[in-house]
Design a protein around this nucleic acid. Structure first.
Length: 415
RNA sequence: GGAUCUUUGGCAGAGUUGGUCGAAUGCACCGGUCUUGAAAACCGGCGAGGGUUAUACCUCCCAGAGUUCGAAUCUCUGAGGGUCCA
């Protein structure tokens, strides 16, 4: 959530930043207005409540002294009615404000480039050079089927479209990749955690998926529970409602989970193959830091993800997302795109984001900052999307006959 | 699924004849005295959010609803935990 105090103090700066993310200034103005209305309603209620409290105290004293309370009771009863209406309006204002505030995205950092969509993203650097093939490289679905690694039809049979089944070496490689990535991250100082893949509404509000993106989530109807779209949700929310000691920070974690996404807005895109599935494996990095440290940790996370690809000998590039491509909660994001020779293009395989204090404010994750409590910064990044890594291995390590070599670093994991 | 007990500040744990309780006490933590330094001892501070220049004031004792002039304390519902039964 954006900082309402800051909004009150510096409306212009804030609306300028948010307008870069295509948030209408009138919406921000509305938010400010609602905040002021809430404050007013609160003051009104609190004044009445203070009266009530002091009269009630008086009441107790009267009783003890055996005085007549009938006059006082009349006053107090009359006030009670006013309190009830004041409380009601306060609640209405509160709800209005919250509904609006929770649906406004994070402000982009100063140095995030302006742009409309992914075409305006800016490449930072390329790592490893794509190798030249002496034949026309195939796309991964062809290779996957030829080698018997992935069965797309049977996935559909079991569930619905955008589900697949891995067999044999395909399944082994997935497992190998997960283990390799977790080990790699552990060595970089990220503690491994294993978390629920079903979470409640509150957790999803904390990280920003709700209330706005309910359509993208699989919901368990009978209870207010959802399948996670990313491990970012349970891992970040581990520390919701907590006040951490500064000495505990940064907290750096890594988790493997399956992820579930409805892909509601992706009709027709990537329908073939396993680039965009409803269920996929992902190893995630999450960090909770002080504001001073978050950029440094961001670089660590980015390096970690990039170095995994390098270790797997997969050419990739780093791309700074422009304002138009930036996610709801992110102040800043760098994507890693892996080279897919079959598709002859770079495709997203990781996304590292700093949400600054946006999620922290929603999830109430604070730390003791001297003698006061401040919001932490939260960061998340994939390291990596397992299915897409497998796709990249297939396409980059293919031979002319359709067989596929295995990256050396994975060999120990395949015995 | 049924019965019963339980849910308090970072932790432990008082508070259940409703009032001055945001809440004793201990531990932890922070500051100080002492010490070459540390420990111990002693002194002081120490829940969160809003509000204020600062006070005042308001809210929060699992969540929600209710009774009452007034609820951590009483009633109901729900959630988590324990025990017993099926």
């Amino acid at each position: 959530m954006i900082d309402l105090k800051l909004l009150q103090k510096d409306f212009d700066a804030m609306s300028a930043k948010l307008s870069r993310k295509k948030v209408d200034t009138s919406l921000i103005a509305d938010l400010k207005q609602k905040n002021e209305e809430l404050k007013k309603a609160k003051t009104e209620f609190e004044t009445l409540q203070a009266m009530q409290n002091s009269m009630s105290r008086e009441f107790g004293i009267y009783k003890k002294e055996g005085k007549d309370v009938s006059e006082l009771k009349a006053k107090v009863d009359a006030n009670k009615i006013n309190i009830a209406t004041a409380l009601e309006t306060q609640r209405e204002r509160q709800e209005e404000l919250e509904t609006l505030a929770m649906s406004i995205p994070n402000m982009p950092d100063e140095n995030v480039p302006d742009g409309a969509d992914e075409n305006d993203n800016i490449e930072i650097k390329k790592v490893l050079t794509p190798c030249k093939f002496t034949f026309t490289p195939k796309e991964h679905w062809e290779l996957a089927e030829q080698n018997g690694w992935i069965d797309f039809e049977r996935g559909v049979k079991l569930a619905t479209s955008r589900f697949s089944v891995s067999f044999g070496m395909g399944a082994k490689l997935e497992r190998a990749l997960i283990n390799f990535m977790l080990n790699f991250n552990s060595k970089r100082g990220f503690e491994e955690v294993s978390v629920p893949v079903i979470v409640n509404r509150n957790a999803l509000k904390g990280t920003g998926q709700l209330p706005k993106f309910e359509d993208d989530l699989y919901k368990i109807d009978s209870q207010e529970l959802f399948l996670i779209p990313t491990a970012e949700v349970p891992v970040t929310n581990l520390f919701a409602d907590e006040i951490l000691e500064e000495s505990q920070l940064p907290i750096k974690m890594t988790a493997y989970t399956p992820c579930f996404r409805k892909e509601a807005g992706a009709a027709g895109r990537d329908t073939r193959g396993m680039i965009r599935q409803h269920q996929f494996h992902k190893v995630e990095l999450v960090a909770i830091t002080t504001p001073q440290n978050s950029d440094e940790v961001f670089d660590e996370m980015l390096a970690c993800a990039s170095d995994i690809l390098t270790a797997l000998e997969l050419p990739h590039r780093l791309v700074t997302l422009c304002t138009g491509d930036l996610g709801f909660s992110a102040a800043r994001t760098v994507d890693i795109e892996v080279w897919l020779p079959g598709q002859n293009t770079y495709r997203e395989i990781s996304s590292v984001s700093n949400t600054r204090d946006f999620q922290a404010r929603r999830a109430k994750i604070r730390y003791r900052n001297g003698n006061k409590n401040s919001m932490v910064h939260t960061l998340n990044g994939s390291s990596l999307a397992v299915g897409r890594t497998l796709v990249a291995i297939m396409e980059n390590f293919q031979n002319e006959d359709g067989s596929i070599n295995i990256p050396k670093v994975l060999e120990p994991y395949l015995n």
